[in-house]
Amino acid sequence: MGNGSRVFAYLRASTADQDATRAKTMLDTFCHEQGASISGYFVENASGATLDRPELMRALSFMQEGDVLLLEQVDRLTRLKSAEWEKLRAIIEGKGIRLCALDLPFTFPVLEKKDSVAEDDFQQRIMAAITGMMLDVLAAVARKDFDDRRRRQKEGIAKAKEQGKYAGRKKDEQKRNQILVLRERGLSYSEIEGLLGCSRRTISKAVRGV
């Protein structure tokens, strides 16, 4: 990439039990194939339906004009309602940050080196217009998907309650027992995370019997 532009990856998972770094290797490989490298990672476990995301805000605050925010998918950035998406988009555009998402091939050129400043400026203006339009559409789709899933979940729970079948979330007893055995053997939380692929929160809940 030319003109001192840097690439920063934003990785997000919705809950503490999910691995927010799952796509890190994929993003690294993609950048390498594009002849670029990732200068830093911003990782967090938070819902995409809220702007209360410290790592995302830290990334946007740290990044400079011309830098690229790399995403696995657009829904990693937003599942926001329309008004909140407009606020987030205004921050991104106001700082001159460019977006690249693996599910949007037309954003890949932001990682390419340009032959001339004129070509770079011309293509950037075209890409900014196209990206802005497509992001609005995909942000709306991501929000609709979020709302639909929540609605179906509520409907399913309500139906199960009517039939007397709903008992809340089932605990993974096998995983819980594995955690307890490993703790009894003196393994640390980090060691258990590595062996079982579960989160620190899951380990803590198992140890506390929650």
Score class of each variant (00 low, 15 high):
99 L>P: 00
197 G>I: 05
111 L>G: 06
106 F>A: 12
58 R>F: 02
18 Q>D: 11
140 A>C: 06
130 I>Y: 07
118 A>Y: 10
178 Q>A: 06
11 L>I: 03
41 Y>A: 02
133 M>T: 14
74 V>P: 08
147 D>T: 08
131 T>L: 05
165 K>C: 01
109 P>V: 04
111 L>P: 00
103 D>Q: 01
35 G>K: 00
44 E>L: 07
1 M>F: 08
4 G>Q: 07
176 R>W: 12
163 Q>R: 14
191 E>D: 13
93 E>S: 07
74 V>N: 09
26 M>P: 09
164 G>D: 09
95 K>R: 13
145 D>K: 08
63 M>N: 04
3 N>M: 13
162 E>P: 08
181 V>S: 14
120 D>V: 05
72 E>C: 09
25 T>N: 13
4 G>C: 01
114 K>H: 13
53 R>T: 03
89 R>E: 12
113 K>H: 07
168 G>E: 02
208 R>I: 00
70 L>A: 00
194 G>F: 02
176 R>A: 09
198 C>D: 03
195 L>T: 08
35 G>S: 09
198 C>I: 12
170 K>Y: 07
34 Q>F: 01
9 A>Y: 11
205 K>S: 11
124 Q>C: 15
87 K>M: 15
71 L>H: 02
45 N>H: 05
194 G>S: 09
2 G>D: 03
81 K>S: 12
20 A>I: 05
207 V>W: 09
44 E>M: 08
207 V>T: 02
97 I>T: 11
136 D>P: 00
153 Q>R: 13
8 F>E: 02
88 L>E: 04
174 Q>E: 15
21 T>A: 14
84 E>P: 07
37 S>A: 13
101 A>Q: 01
122 F>K: 11
126 I>P: 03
46 A>H: 12
76 R>F: 08
169 R>P: 05
122 F>S: 06
17 D>F: 06
194 G>H: 07
26 M>F: 11
125 R>T: 15
187 L>S: 00
126 I>S: 07
68 V>S: 04
132 G>H: 10
174 Q>N: 14
149 R>E: 08
145 D>H: 10
110 V>S: 00
174 Q>Y: 12
205 K>Y: 11
133 M>E: 12
119 E>W: 06
35 G>N: 01
57 M>W: 06
58 R>E: 14
175 K>R: 15
59 A>G: 10
144 K>L: 13
121 D>R: 15
200 R>M: 13
144 K>C: 03
123 Q>L: 14
48 G>F: 01
111 L>V: 04
66 G>Q: 01
150 R>Y: 00
95 K>W: 00
178 Q>N: 10
127 M>T: 01
8 F>I: 08
94 G>Y: 07
40 G>Q: 06
141 V>Q: 10
6 R>T: 04
158 A>I: 09
176 R>N: 11
127 M>V: 08
149 R>T: 13
201 R>L: 10
149 R>D: 08
41 Y>F: 13
91 I>L: 15
29 T>S: 15
114 K>N: 07
4 G>T: 01
157 I>Q: 03
87 K>H: 14
48 G>D: 04
